[in-house]
């Protein structure tokens, strides 16, 4: 007997047996995990050449970064006296430490590439055009956040590579008119990169920036889900003044209140 046909299964999935496509849509609609997806998408979105699946790749890399990053946090103390030693311990003594660190590092580099490539692909597809302008703007912020996360993480090993790259990076702030000098001081926590900088970058890297990142990502996905069925370059669909509004002319059948599973 299948789990979803038992009393317990029904209480979990709350969906009818999958007999028709409508049942399947209903099951999708009542699933918490699937609610970040629309119920239906345009067929062309399935093709590899449509998106190259770069958005999915970026999201998966973010997940890999969160998992490997949390593992590394168990073995790392952000202080100039301990940080470098902890890195050596991670690489030599911690079980799978070197491997997890590698995965974290390469995921971060790859994520910068996939996020940038995702933006380029969206540009050439013209997918930033109305009504998707605002999602593009959120995407720009996500790219900036990716770079900031990479940069703050770069300091944490406290080796020569880290120390001087961050010295150069933060010194750039000095040249911003009016607020530059104090912005650099707030970021660095002193005249030069030191203990205060390390703890600041650590907090930014493991708490503040990831939270902001996830918040922006959720809005990004939500906008994608809302717009997933809107077509482009068709009169009255996706480009007209009433496109996407409920009941507006050109709204596809089923995008209203009752239909479409929305």
């Amino acid at each position: 007997m299948k789990l979803r046909e038992t009393n317990v299964g029904r209480s979990i999935f709350r969906s009818p047996d999958r007999k028709t496509e409508r049942d399947r849509a209903a099951g999708h609609w009542s699933s918490f995990l699937l609610h970040i997806y629309p119920v239906k998408v345009r067929r062309e979105e399935l093709h590899f050449r449509y998106s190259w699946y770069l958005g999915v790749a970026s999201t998966v890399l973010l997940a890999s970064l969160v998992v490997s990053g949390v593992y590394l946090m168990f073995f790392y103390v952000p202080s100039p006296t301990t940080a470098y030693g902890d890195m050596q311990t991670i690489q030599t003594e911690v079980a799978f430490g070197q491997f997890i660190r590698n995965v974290h590092r390469w995921s971060a580099h790859l994520m910068v590439i996939t996020v940038a490539a995702h933006m380029a692909r969206v540009f050439y597809r013209g997918a930033y055009k109305p009504p998707r302008e605002f999602n593009w703007v959120i995407g720009v912020f996500l790219l900036i956040l990716t770079l900031l996360l990479s940069f703050t993480g770069y300091l944490l090993p406290w080796d020569q590579l880290a120390y001087w790259a961050v010295t150069v990076g933060t010194s750039m702030a000095d040249f911003v008119p009016f607020i530059g000098g104090s912005a650099r001081e707030v970021l660095v926590g002193g005249d030069q990169v030191g203990a205060a900088t390390l703890i600041r970058f650590y907090v930014l890297h493991v708490a503040l920036l990831p939270l902001i990142m996830v918040a922006f990502l959720l809005v990004h996905l939500w906008r994608w889900r809302k717009d997933a069925m809107l077509d482009q370059e068709r009169p009255g669909m996706g480009l007209g003044p009433h496109a996407g509004e409920e009941g507006g002319v050109g709204a596809p059948p089923g995008s209203g209140k009752q239909g479409g599973g929305e």
Binding site: G27, R42, E44, Y53, A57, S64, M229, M237
Partner: peptide
Amino acid sequence: PEEQDLVTVWPHLLVRHAVVGVAVLLFV
């Protein structure tokens, strides 16, 4: 309005996303 060519996300898109996700993870 023109009838759109729509497919259900489950299974068509989800399966592809799962494959891409596993491939990316494997690569890393």
